[in-house]
Nucleic acid binder design. Sequence first.
DNA 1: CCCATAATTCGAAATATGTCGAATATTGAA
DNA 2: TTCAATATTCGACATATTTCGAATTATGGG
Lengths: 105, 105
Amino acid sequence: MSNIEKPPLAAAFKALSNPHRLTLFNRLLNCCEPGTRCDAASATRFCVGDLGEGLEIAPSTLSHHLKELNRAGLVEMARKGKRVECWVEPEKLKTLSQFFQPNPP
Amino acid sequence: MSNIEKPPLAAAFKALSNPHRLTLFNRLLNCCEPGTRCDAASATRFCVGDLGEGLEIAPSTLSHHLKELNRAGLVEMARKGKRVECWVEPEKLKTLSQFFQPNPP
DNA sequence: CCCATAATTCGAAATATGTCGAATATTGAA
DNA sequence: TTCAATATTCGACATATTTCGAATTATGGG
């Protein structure tokens, strides 16, 4: 487990394996309005604090989880004034979705 | 982390978060021939031993990982004589694939 | 019935993860 | 500049995971 290849996909799934992180990701998942062309520019954004709303975890834990999602390449982050905005790149979703469709019809 | 809800999806992703398990799952993923209607009956099957081929892990570890994949609902298992066959239900793949497509076009 | 093959269970050890609180940064506003 | 709001880093601790080898179970063949 220490010197074997760790594919990016495994890292992504690890990030999503924690219920708290899965919830956070889920809140960013409906990133564009239904029926619209979903590009990075129109993706819904939440700041860190709002994302953790209702989840009863410490701010430090929330920060840690978002960082994990970011390191796994699932969530983008950018400071905007006092806040830090988070969003999901639609391209990333496509990649993950297609992993489970190895034989398209 | 002890008393919070643990959604089935989180369990699935946790199962796929380990590189060895991801490899095992991957070997079962191309479960049907390209272009054919992919149903459970025609899904490719491997026995436990063959699945672990090339992965340098102990039989007990291999068994453990398959059990995890099975418990997470990702891999089906059934004894067939001396062997135990493993396969992936196409329905499961559809569910996982759609999770990453919350806003279909 | 006895043996070989295939797979699982169990217990132990090393490592990784989730979580918190305290301390620290970063920014905008008064 | 000083303060409040937002977010991150750090160190610590409890719990979970990964892995192995030894022992055990399950099955079919001779």
